[in-house]
Computed example of a mutant assay.
Amino acid sequence: MTDTSATTAPTAAMFPPGRYGRRRAPRVRRPWLVALLTAVAVLVGTAIAGRLYTLYGDPLHQPEVITYTEATEAGITIDFAVTVPPGGATTCLVRARSRDGAEVGRSEVTVRAEPGERHVRTTYRLATERVAFLGEVPRCRPAD
């Protein structure tokens, strides 16, 4: 009687020689390398986030647009508030955009706070090249 698959021990599959290429040896796993690369990626990401925060995320000079009105061919009026250190000054970028998103006006405005005052509300008339659709204050920074 011949052996059947039920009576033989399982072995590795046999492939015809030269037909499927050579078999590769199993890879050596290096969990410490994965952990090291992950730690480096986290440190680099934290450094980049910290740098971007110092450039663009200063809470001492945080602007907030209250309203923009009177959009004409000549300009737009932007009413905004900014948080300033008491007695300090900040320079804010004020800009206007048209309906298609193009920038039609831009200016830097210096806002000064009185001693003991932190939130300063300012109204600024920005000259534009054509009719503006919206006015915005994307960032403020300490005044020079």
Rank of each mutant, 00 (worst) to 15 (best):
E73W: 05
P63C: 05
T128N: 02
A89V: 06
A25N: 12
L126G: 03
T123H: 09
L60H: 14
P86S: 15
P16T: 10
T4N: 11
A71T: 07
A113Y: 03
E70C: 03
V28H: 11
W32N: 05
A96H: 06
E129Y: 02
A9K: 15
T11N: 11
E70L: 02
P26Y: 01
E136V: 07
A96S: 03
A9M: 15
R121L: 10
D3H: 06
V28D: 09
L43W: 09
A89D: 11
A74E: 07
A35V: 07
L52Q: 12
D79F: 12
G21N: 02
V84Y: 03
T11Q: 14
R51D: 00
T83G: 07
G18N: 01
D79Q: 12
G18W: 01
T91Y: 04
H119W: 10
A9V: 15
S107V: 08
R125Y: 09
V44A: 12
T90A: 14
R118K: 13
E103W: 06
I78N: 00
E108S: 10
S107D: 15
A35S: 12
P86V: 14
V34G: 04
Q62H: 15
P63Q: 00
V109W: 05
Y20I: 07
M14Y: 11
H119T: 14
A39C: 03
V94G: 03
V111C: 02
R139H: 02
V94R: 03
D79L: 14
V44R: 06
T69N: 08
E114I: 04
R141L: 08
R118F: 11
T46G: 10
F15W: 13
L36P: 02
Q62M: 13
R97E: 14
W32S: 09
T8G: 04
V94C: 06
T2W: 07
R51V: 00
P85R: 07
R121V: 15
G57M: 00
D58C: 06
E108D: 11
